[in-house]
Simulated scan of single mutants.
Amino acid sequence: MLELSWAFFAIAGPAAIFAGISKGGFGSGAAFAAASILALVVEPGLALGVMLPLLMLVDAATLRPYWGKWHWPTARLMILGGLPGVALGAALYARSDPDVLRVLIGAISIGFVLWQVGRGRGWIRIAAAALPRWAGAVAGCVAGFTSFVSHAGGPPAAVYLLSLKTTKTEYQANTVLIFFAINIFKFVPYAFLGMFTAQTGMANLVLAPFALLGAWIGVKMHFMVPERAFFALTYVLLMATGTKLIWDGLT
């Protein structure tokens, strides 16, 4: 049961802004931090259900600034690859209890930080040459799965997209379009699995302006602010929330 209290909105409002900034300006990679944060205070399924309509709203709001700047063959490949990944995520969710999801979301949160730090330190290297097209389909499938269970499709998508050595704006445009489509795919199974309730709908109405504000800030920041400062804050949030979720799930 989702209780729409002042305490909930004190956490959910900043989380929605943060998700909007990430999706609007920084490749969607850290947007799932909002769901990780919400999962600390509500059941993980409800946290995911609250965030999906907000992420879809941000997707729609950020399509226009990046319209036509994506590489359609690449985006199409990863969108089609995302379909079986979404189906796998739905199958897992239907057979899991909330503690399993807490551990999974927490592990993905910490894994994201380790992957990003490893890239920054040179411990993990993106392929020097563009990965083959089949790798794009696989990356799309993994992105669909992780997006379904934690809204964390950004890292697997980035592995393929970064190998293509695209411009910063083309990369951002690709992620906007890819996750716009994958989030639409997720909506129907989320509804059938009971992840949307009257309370999550009311929360969405209140939080929509926060998400749109974040998206607007993110688009502006994309052209003005380096990623380093933004992701430094993200890493701290994700390590803290990921550790807490794993602890809660196991204990």
Rank of each mutant, 00 (worst) to 15 (best):
24 G>Q: 02
120 G>P: 03
196 F>V: 12
42 V>Q: 04
172 Q>E: 03
56 M>N: 13
226 P>T: 02
180 F>Q: 05
212 L>C: 07
200 T>S: 13
123 W>V: 08
148 F>M: 15
216 W>R: 08
236 V>L: 14
180 F>E: 01
32 F>L: 05
239 M>R: 04
114 L>M: 11
183 N>E: 13
204 N>D: 13
177 L>M: 13
186 K>L: 14
142 V>F: 11
131 L>W: 15
67 W>N: 03
68 G>P: 07
18 F>Q: 04
64 R>T: 13
207 L>T: 05
84 P>L: 08
35 A>C: 09
73 P>V: 03
102 R>H: 06
12 A>Y: 06
188 V>C: 00
188 V>P: 02
18 F>S: 04
145 F>T: 14
23 K>P: 06
9 F>M: 02
13 G>N: 00
111 G>S: 10
25 G>N: 07
200 T>E: 08
84 P>M: 05
39 A>D: 02
249 G>D: 09
190 Y>P: 07
224 M>D: 04
182 I>F: 12
128 A>R: 15
84 P>D: 08
34 A>C: 13
3 E>Y: 04
93 Y>Q: 09
240 A>W: 13
105 I>K: 01
81 G>H: 08
138 V>N: 00
196 F>D: 03
246 I>Q: 11
119 R>E: 05
180 F>C: 10
231 F>K: 11
227 E>R: 04
222 H>N: 14
77 L>D: 12
181 A>G: 07
20 G>V: 03
61 A>D: 11
199 Q>G: 12
194 G>L: 00
208 A>W: 08
135 A>W: 02
107 A>M: 08
27 G>H: 12
110 I>C: 10
30 A>T: 11
33 A>K: 06
221 M>L: 15
100 V>G: 11
89 G>L: 05
246 I>D: 07
114 L>S: 03
118 G>E: 01
25 G>A: 07
125 R>E: 13
183 N>Y: 10
55 L>R: 00
119 R>H: 06
92 L>N: 01
245 L>G: 09
137 A>K: 01
56 M>W: 06
167 T>D: 11
132 P>H: 07
38 L>E: 06
38 L>D: 01
83 L>F: 14
51 M>N: 07
68 G>H: 10
112 F>N: 06
119 R>A: 05
1 M>W: 03
194 G>A: 01
165 K>N: 15
51 M>D: 02
225 V>C: 14
230 F>P: 05
148 F>W: 05
246 I>W: 04
249 G>L: 09
84 P>R: 14
250 L>N: 00
13 G>W: 09
43 E>P: 09
242 G>Q: 07
243 T>A: 15
84 P>N: 11
223 F>E: 15
232 A>G: 03
228 R>W: 06
203 A>N: 14
242 G>D: 10
211 A>V: 08
135 A>I: 05
169 T>A: 14
154 G>E: 10
84 P>T: 06
119 R>W: 03
183 N>R: 12
245 L>N: 13
235 Y>M: 12
234 T>L: 13
246 I>R: 10
31 A>I: 02
29 G>D: 03
64 R>A: 15
64 R>C: 02
